[in-house]
Design a binder for these strands. Structure first.
Lengths: 255, 255
DNA sequence: ATCTGACTTCCACTGAGTGGAAGCCCCGGC
DNA sequence: GCCGGGGCTTCCACTCAGTGGAAGTCAGAT
């Protein structure tokens, strides 16, 4: 049993949170015993806490007794400022980009040392795309990731550069080479990847600016960049500027 | 101070959950004191619990000290089965509908005695639309709501029919009249509203079926139904059947 | 300079939470 | 049909995590 028991913790609250954290993309439904195991909590305790979480709506119980994340957690999650304004605002631009290219389009932000995907419009399934809305990927192997990394504070860059896990044979794992690319990203105002995250998929990313700060990135995934990189970059930058303009207007808050 | 303190509860967990529940669409950012007040918890207790929630990522703290819902809660919420399959699957159909009509399009499910909006593509802002993704509205005053109500179990119908709050002058508040409409909905397989939720907005809703059970509803909001109700109903039903067909295929689970 | 109100820290008390043990129930093998 | 195993649920005496009043801190308003 590959439990990823994340530091049991001693407080009640941390146990309850551990129960919630036991769920991930590959574990959307858990039996009580699995739940207890993954959360690192004794079964009776998990039972009692889970019951409370179910009563509140943080978890739900399927007909056959398994636990799943509850609706209430879903709709409370939507209040998070990450997505509150940005996703709504960017949505029409993503549609436009998608309409113009029929490729997979992404909106992402940096969360610590990872890319967090806020929204995605996925095109034809011909290109393998790993990301889903809400998923996190490494910064160094995606188009949006490189953009966000290039504009990240120094300590984040250092942290990322010291460990560049290889994902495909084309993933850039030499800090020096990536560092050079990041400088280039700042100069060109866009980033690209070629099969660095998944074979058969290339991507372009551009920054979205609120006033002057880069707060998010817009990206697109295509089978090859040979033919129309310039066209894609142009389209992305137009959209990114449109979104940035929208962000400047109201009282758009960040964390 | 209009605190909606939701039954303080005695357990630690319920207090922690109350803190999370203190947030809603009109209260996305709360100071410690507001948070404590709305959750019905003494300030020092709120302070300690909130700190734990922040450490875990359920809440976050803005630069100026206010609390907001955290990113982690957002992305864990996305694992909820409500939206997991449905939203993804329905997304292209919503786009098609939107493309064809340029009106606001909705995907919704029933949650208890309310409509829960899972997705929305909003069209021109000329029509006032109240719902946002994740929001809940009464069943009796919306197109999707009437559809979901018509197919809801008897006890839910009774519960709703005994209390029909007036929202606009056109809201249906007589149980008998609504009951007749619901029968009509079952017969026609669509529902309509005319300025019952907000003035200047009419809507049409149709059921989405998985096998035979109605699991969701698809709706559209327009300024007037005079002209092209038939056309809208047809378009919606085509889309709804497409989504239903998709739901029948894989191991699409519900609660 | 002083006040006000919000945030944070402290700490002695205590009852909420714990989890081992036992009971229950379902399913699958013999 | 009976038995055994595994997962779920309930119980309850012990105890330590959680509590929250009180006091300290800080920022901004007067």
């Amino acid at each position: 049993m590959a439990g990823n028991s994340s530091a049991p913790g001693t407080s009640v609250t941390s146990r309850a949170l551990a129960l919630v954290a036991a769920f991930d993309e590959d574990h959307r439904r858990l039996t009580l015993t699995e739940l207890a195991g993954r959360a690192g909590v004794p079964v009776p305790t998990a039972h009692r806490l889970a019951a409370e979480l179910v009563a509140w709506g943080a978890l739900a119980r399927t007909r056959d007794g398994e636990f799943v994340i509850g609706r209430r957690l879903w709709d409370i999650g939507l209040l998070a400022p990450v997505q509150a304004g940005l996703v709504e605002l960017a949505s029409p631009y993503l549609h436009d980009l998608y309409g113009a290219t029929l490729a997979t389009v992404h909106l992402a932000v940096r969360d610590g040392t990872e890319v967090l995907y806020l929204d995605r419009l996925s095109g034809s399934v011909s290109v393998p795309v790993v990301s889903t809305v809400g998923s996190r990927l490494p910064l160094h192997a995606t188009g949006v990731g490189k953009v966000l990394l290039a504009h990240a504070p120094g300590e984040v860059q250092e942290a990322v550069l010291t460990d560049l896990p290889r994902i495909t044979p084309y993933t850039i794992t030499q800090p020096g080479r990536l560092r050079r690319q990041l400088r280039q990203v700042l100069r060109d105002d866009y980033a690209t990847t070629s099969e660095e995250m998944s074979l058969g998929a290339c991507s372009v990313g551009v920054p979205i600016r609120q006033h002057d700060a880069v707060v998010a990135a817009l990206g697109i995934v295509v089978p090859s960049l040979k033919r129309d990189k310039a066209r894609l970059v142009a389209a992305l930058q137009v959209a990114a500027r449109g979104i940035g303009r929208g962000l400047a207007l109201p009282s758009s808050e960040s964390i």
